[in-house]
Amino acid sequence: MTPNPRTICIDVDNTLGDYTGALRRYVQDRWGDKYTCPDPTDYDFSWTPGWPFTGRPDRFRKVHSKAVDNGLYELELAYPHADEALRLIHDAGWRIIIATARKDDGGALPVWLADNHIPYDGIHYGDKLDVRASVLVDDRPDTIRAGVAAGLHVFKPAHEYCQWGGGIVFRDWMDVPCLLEVL
C-alpha cells in the first residue's frame, strides 16, 4: 500500500489530548490526595508507582473503564497549541486523519474534536498503520517502532516512555508544522 505523501495520521490519547491529566483528575476526585499520580514512566501505566493500580494491569483496566463510564474522554484536554498547529497543517494542504485504538469511546471523539476546534479530514478506529499516511504522530512505543520500520516519518511527544525506538520528539504542538516543512 503506497502512502499518501500529504497525509498525516495523528493519535489522540497522550498525543493530541492529555489522557494522563484526565485520568489523574479522575483518580484524585475519587481517592483525594492518597495517590500522587505522576506522569507515567512506561506506556503501561501500571508500571508507574503512585497510582491506585500500580503493579496491577488488571486493576488499571478496571479503573480506566470506570473513568470512561464517568466521562474520561470528554474531560481530556487538548494539548496547548494543538488546534492552532493542526489548522496550520491543514491550511498547508495536509490531509489530517485522527486515529485511535479506542474501542470504548461511544462516539465521543467527533464531539471532542469539535469542542477543541481540531480540524480533521477523517477518523480511523484501529491500527494506525492501516491509514495510508506518510507521517505518523503517536506516543505508543510499539506503534512508533512499527511506523519507523514501515518507512513513515514519525513524530512523538516528549513523554518519558516513548523516547526510544526512533522518530522525532516534539515538545510543543507548534513544533509539528515546522517539522513537516523540512520533509
Rank of each mutant, 00 (worst) to 15 (best):
80 P>F: 10
66 K>W: 10
140 R>E: 07
69 D>F: 03
170 F>D: 04
137 V>Q: 04
107 G>S: 03
107 G>V: 03
162 C>M: 05
96 I>Q: 07
158 A>G: 06
144 I>Q: 06
124 H>E: 00
119 P>W: 07
83 D>W: 10
125 Y>W: 15
164 W>Q: 13
78 A>W: 08
114 A>S: 13
81 H>N: 07
105 D>T: 05
145 R>A: 08
72 L>P: 05
113 L>S: 04
144 I>W: 05
104 D>S: 09
94 W>C: 14
104 D>M: 10
87 R>T: 11
95 R>V: 02
110 P>C: 10
85 A>Y: 08
73 Y>D: 02
101 A>G: 13
72 L>N: 10
172 D>W: 15
96 I>D: 04
73 Y>C: 06
169 V>T: 15
136 L>N: 03
118 I>K: 07
154 V>D: 01
126 G>K: 06
68 V>C: 13
151 G>V: 08
167 G>K: 12
115 D>A: 11
149 A>V: 01
172 D>Y: 11
119 P>S: 06
136 L>K: 04
122 G>L: 06
107 G>T: 01
79 Y>K: 02
144 I>E: 08
85 A>K: 07
109 L>S: 00
130 D>G: 13
166 G>M: 12
134 S>D: 10
91 D>W: 05
111 V>D: 11
72 L>F: 02
135 V>R: 00
91 D>N: 13
84 E>Y: 12
80 P>D: 14
175 D>F: 04
121 D>H: 07
80 P>L: 13
100 T>W: 04
118 I>F: 12
72 L>T: 07
95 R>Y: 02
95 R>C: 05
75 L>S: 14
84 E>V: 14
159 H>Q: 08
66 K>A: 05
67 A>L: 04
71 G>N: 12
90 H>C: 04
81 H>G: 03
137 V>K: 05
151 G>C: 03
70 N>R: 12
94 W>Q: 12
168 I>W: 06
130 D>K: 15
117 H>Q: 09
111 V>N: 09
69 D>W: 05
118 I>S: 08
